[in-house]
């Protein structure tokens, strides 16, 4: 194929990008930087400094960070086990693992709601067993649980993909040179899997930071994440300008964290001694 015809093939994607990414972004910027009358203002952005918004942002940041960390701690050993036993190749286990992802995201989260409710499945079971009830519905813990449950596969898969590509002989070479299992893990496997860890973190942290569905369903009405605040401005409050302004702040946060992670990656390569 020559250059010209391949370029033509790119047009549909360009149209798609323009229509569904660039234009909405520009519109958010427009709304965020204007007031109801259409006059330029920074108020919508500065509004983030209010205690209420700062609290929501802070809560979102901490909950999504904690969830990302938990996902990472669960996923890495899991991905290692999948790799070690070449389970990834017999796709059945992976299939079982991915199966819940085929269910609607909303449905899965609502299922957790019924499980965790005061008189829900888990508590009924506990009372039958004469154990104290579990009171985590409508707490940050329930939100973290929902985030970890929903986003875990997005951490496992990129890490597994990177690990699976590491040649067995690279690990054998480390062992051959005297490294025990722990050293092989910390000096060889971990550094080599950093790209997977980073994309895993990105794929969990960003949706967790912006979610409002999980906090709505599992956090009750009292716990407001920044995602809930923005959602409410767009729906109930009908203040699109404020919602857009806060979204922009959130985007900047995400950009900053991604840059920090990418930078850490470069420094993480270390020097000779």
């Amino acid at each position: 194929m020559n250059k010209k015809s391949t370029r033509i093939l790119a047009y549909p994607y360009l149209v798609w990008m323009a229509g569904f990414t660039v234009i909405p972004l520009l519109m958010i910027c427009y709304y965020g930087l204007t007031d109801r009358t259409g006059a330029f203002t920074l108020d919508n952005i500065l509004a983030v400094a209010s205690t209420e918004h700062m609290k929501a942002l802070w809560l979102s940041l901490s909950l999504s960070l904690i969830s990302t960390l938990i996902c990472l701690l669960i996923s890495y050993p899991l991905a290692l086990i999948l790799r070690q036993h070449h389970i990834g190749k017999s796709s059945f286990v992976v299939f079982i693992f991915i199966l819940p992802m085929w269910m609607n995201f909303l449905l899965r989260t609502m299922a957790w709601q019924t499980l965790l409710e005061k008189n829900g499945v888990i508590n009924s079971l506990l009372s039958v067993l004469r154990l104290p009830p579990l009171a985590i519905i409508n707490t940050p813990a329930a939100i973290i649980l929902g985030m970890v449950y929903n986003f875990l596969p997005f951490m496992v898969l990129p890490i597994y993909n990177v690990l699976a590509k590491i040649d067995d002989n690279v690990m054998n070479a480390a062992r051959d040179l005297g490294a025990d299992n722990v050293t092989t893990l910390t000096k060889i496997l971990l550094p080599l899997s950093i790209p997977g860890i980073i994309s895993g973190i990105t794929m969990v942290f960003v949706p967790a930071l912006t979610t409002f569905v999980i906090s709505n369903l599992l956090g009750g009405s009292k716990i407001l994440l920044i995602g809930n605040v923005i959602e409410q401005e767009f729906t109930r409050g009908s203040n699109w300008n404020l919602g857009a302004g806060l979204s922009m702040v959130l985007m900047v946060f995400i950009l900053i964290s991604m840059t920090l992670i990418a930078k850490y990656d470069k420094n993480g390569e270390g020097t000779a001694f």
Partner: peptide, 19 residues
């Protein structure tokens, strides 16, 4: 185990540490 043996191996496809 391999890490305790007083020998070293040069592997078929080098197996260098790319990081």
């Amino acid at each position: 185990p391999p890490n305790k043996r007083q020998l070293n191996t040069v592997f078929q496809k080098y197996a260098l540490f790319t990081h």
